[in-house]
Nucleic acid binder design. Structure first.
Lengths: 136, 136
DNA sequence: TATTGTTATACTCTATAACTATA
DNA sequence: TATAGTTATAGAGTATAACAATA
């Protein structure tokens, strides 16, 4: 079939993101984690005491969608929430949360290295700078 | 906030795809079109008489999800379906469908040129080859 | 007055299963 | 036996609106 789409950068960008995203999700599933959850755990781990609103702004996740996500993490014993003042809650990883994050990081590190290895060497160093120009 | 994610290619890929996808969707909305619909129209336009199943395979859209999408296109008068044999239907654009596709193409061509222009010149030629290595 | 956290809700996209009819 | 088209359905992701409490 003739397919004019395969030479369209925006389309290829979407397909590449879908393909790699699906693969990563499959690798994270055995840990009981999704990509959005892992990104939240990473940010909490790197910024102890951070608020849900601050994480949402950084990751482009609406406040309204952070609430149930954090509730599941708390119920699973991966994070704890401590009042910073009367209206804000500081987020921290529990011991279990740190262990889980460590496992997720191993999966992700492997996966990212694999992604880069699939890109021909002469294009590899250009990949991240090109992507960052499109959203940062 | 400290954010270890911004230097992770897979994460950056997802964010870049989301950002550009949202922007393109906003530009297609005035035409009453979504990205998936436009990609289907493009394939039908380039392959008159193609079947729904063949398009689904090419675009990674499930047969079950093609059905309502094509029904809406037919109800909107943009495509017509003619029996190829007892079980297959050939898809073709109507005159209105060709007009709509032409409008969509103008939007997309502008958008793709703009995307490429945002990527620093020294990285630009490496972008599509790198993406294609990840999904083709 | 703006922000935080929360609930409820709706819409899109996508995935699976099941069915009929035909190649 | 495999394929085409269809329907129904469920899950995930995401968006908006509204509310109470606090900065």
């Amino acid at each position: 079939m003739h397919d004019p789409l395969i030479s369209v950068p925006g389309y290829s960008l979407r397909r590449a993101a879908n393909a790699t995203g699906a693969e990563l999700s499959a690798r994270l599933a055995p840990l009981g984690l999704r990509q959005s959850v892992v990104s939240v755990l990473i940010l909490i781990g790197a910024n102890p005491g951070v608020t849900a609103s601050a994480i949402g702004r950084q990751l482009d996740i609406q406040r309204a969608n952070m609430a149930p996500l954090l509730k599941r993490l708390e119920d699973a014993g991966l994070i704890k929430r401590l009042p910073l003042d009367g209206k804000s809650l500081g987020l921290d990883l529990t011991g279990d949360g740190q262990d889980k994050l460590k496992q997720a990081r191993a999966v992700i590190d492997d996966f990212e290295a694999e992604i880069l290895s699939r890109i021909p060497a002469e294009h590899r160093a250009h990949f991240l700078p090109a992507l960052e120009a499109l959203w940062r």
